[in-house]
């Protein structure tokens, strides 16, 4: 936890370039990352199967909610893949996706509260992920902390 609190002092680009780059394929999915792989995997399966079932059964009921669930599934799937793959490019891509995920949860969460009529059925990100024990909000924050920390390893 100690190292992760230093988010206010990003390493300067020059300093970053001087660090050895031979560990190009460093592991993102081991150690604490393994727990993240698990949760992202679970949410990929949960969001994907949920949106597929809902779309197949009755797409017309709440198209917006179902499409948003499908988008969430794609984002989760990509982050899971990046964590397993490892390396600097995957780390950056995962970081961008975690930010997108957090933005998605916050935007969709606020949207469902402000305009419930647009969502006859809920999504994975409705009410900030309340139906999923708020894990959709916690996960991207933990993910970004881990991914920032992995850079310094």
């Amino acid at each position: 936890m100690r190292d992760t609190d230093r988010t206010g002092t990003p390493a300067s680009p020059a300093q970053e370039r001087n660090t050895p780059r031979q560990k190009q394929q460093f592991e993102l999915g081991s150690g604490p990352g393994r727990v993240l792989v698990w949760f992202y995997g679970v949410f990929t399966v949960a969001a994907a199967s949920r949106s597929i079932v809902e779309m197949v059964l009755d797409f017309g009921k709440a198209p917006l909610a179902y499409v948003l669930s499908a988008v969430a599934a794609v984002v989760y799937g990509f982050i899971t893949y990046s964590l397993v793959r490892g390396g600097e490019r995957a780390r950056r891509a995962a970081l961008v996706c975690c930010a997108a995920e957090l933005a998605g949860v916050l935007i969709v969460g606020t949207w469902t509260l402000l305009e419930p009529a647009a969502f006859p059925d809920s999504t994975v990100w409705s009410e900030f992920g309340m139906g999923y024990l708020f894990i959709p909000v916690i996960l991207p924050v933990t993910g970004m902390i881990w991914l920032r920390r992995a850079r310094n390893v």
Partner: peptide
Amino acid sequence: LSLSERTRWGSVTVAAG
């Protein structure tokens, strides 16, 4: 997942599962 993660984090993963 915990089979290939022989640290405490493998245990955390199973607990989470």
